[in-house]
Amino acid sequence: MNLETLGQVLVETDVVVEPDSVALLVDALGTPDAEEVALRLPFFGPTVGGGDSVVGPIDLSLERGLAGGQSFEWHRSFRLGEQVSVVVSVEDIIDKGTLHLATVLSEYRGADGDLIQRQRTVFVERKPPGEQAQTAAADHGAESGEPAS
């Protein structure tokens, strides 16, 4: 991961709550309340600006990375067909032993500027084997008081 993206705004754009996209989510869930659910999460922050809009800049490996969690703060549901503005940023990105962790924040606002939703997705990425070995050596050095090289 690219730790230098900490705090960067990666996407700032307007998007429409497309009825066809919501219909796909409703089909996927297949329950009586599916539309209400879909209108609470019609966008995935890390891809709302395009498939590579976050994965590219933060340099997330899809083979070594996965989503470890998500949190949502809702102020209201989205409305079918409405246009909203979204800002996606890297709220946190850290090196943690053999892992990299990143928190991607996306905030959605209606035409009136009022907040609709704040969404966070945490990605966990295993470092490549070579980098893991370096981390292990550095940790060992730190534990034994030896300089990490």
Partner: peptide, 16 residues
């Protein structure tokens, strides 16, 4: 099919 519909709905192209 449901998994495909969902990722299409949120435009997530991750092949995993």
């Amino acid at each position: 099919e449901a998994m495909r519909s969902f990722v299409d709905g949120v435009s997530d192209p991750n092949p995993v």
